[in-house]
């Protein structure tokens, strides 16, 4: 079991290969569909204007500056958590398993590169663009156990803050401090994807079954 402390160096990422179990410790950020779309359109492709601050909150530009610092060497976790303490803002993660990652395929490689991240955590694996992104950045795709929400929530020691709360609880970007968050490398920075291998093998078996 390899223990990784965030920020993780590029050299450490190159040492990881598919099948390696890891434990992550440090500060990461949750982000899923709305967050990825927002990052891509506002800061990477710049086709949408950043929103100004309202109701005493932060402007998109301010959030971006903070995210750049947090995400360098870190990870985005594809997760829409159940959070307690919404009324008092004493936030606590109650249930926090991974969501399906493939929906972020159009954005992921760009986002990883732009923020110099060391990878993403999710479930189900991702496609060729992200795999290439892992090679270039370098980064890894980490697979967490889908549905293991109570167990993973226990590794979340502290909710540091939340960005874009207006996206709704599942879609907001929660900044969390984790300790020994368990995951498995299923896409590495050497162009290997465990998902492709299993897909191809199952397809072969299916074709054989169709001949019966």
């Amino acid at each position: 079991m390899r223990e990784l402390t965030i920020p993780v160096s590029a050299a450490t990422i190159r040492e990881l290969h598919i099948g390696d179990p890891v434990l992550l410790t440090g500060i990461m950020v949750t982000g899923r569909d709305t967050a990825h779309k927002w990052l891509e359109e506002t800061f990477i492709k710049k086709i949408k204007a950043p929103a100004p601050a309202k109701d005493g909150g932060r402007s998109d530009e301010e959030i971006y500056a903070e995210l750049k610092k947090i995400l360098a060497g870190s990870f985005i976790y594809h997760c829409g958590p159940v959070v307690a303490g919404l009324d008092t803002k004493q936030y606590r993660f109650v249930a926090a398993g991974p969501t399906t990652s493939i929906r972020e395929e159009p954005f992921q490689a760009d986002v990883m590169k732009h923020f110099d991240m060391r990878g993403v955590i999710g479930k189900g694996g991702m496609g060729p663009r992200t795999l290439q992104g892992c090679k270039d950045t370098p980064a890894v795709y980490l697979h967490a156990i889908g549905g293991a929400a109570s167990l993973i929530a226990q590794t979340v020691k502290r909710v540091v803050g939340v960005y874009k709360y207006e996206f709704g609880v599942p879609e907001a970007m929660w900044v969390i401090e984790v300790e020994k968050f368990p995951a498995v490398v299923t896409m590495d920075s050497h162009g290997q994807s465990q998902h492709t291998a299993i897909f191809d093998n199952s397809k072969k078996v299916l074709e054989k079954l169709f001949k019966e």
Binding site: C79, G80, P81, V82, V94, A95, A96, G97, T99, I145, G146, G147, A148, A149, S150, L151, I152, A153, Q154, P182
Partner: peptide, 21 residues
């Protein structure tokens, strides 16, 4: 094994098995 530990923990703590309820 992780799935089963999670089931036991959720039952004990009364927390959702999966965050996607």
């Amino acid at each position: 094994e992780t799935i089963l530990s999670n089931i036991e923990l959720s039952r004990k703590n009364g927390t959702p098995i999966c965050q996607d309820t």
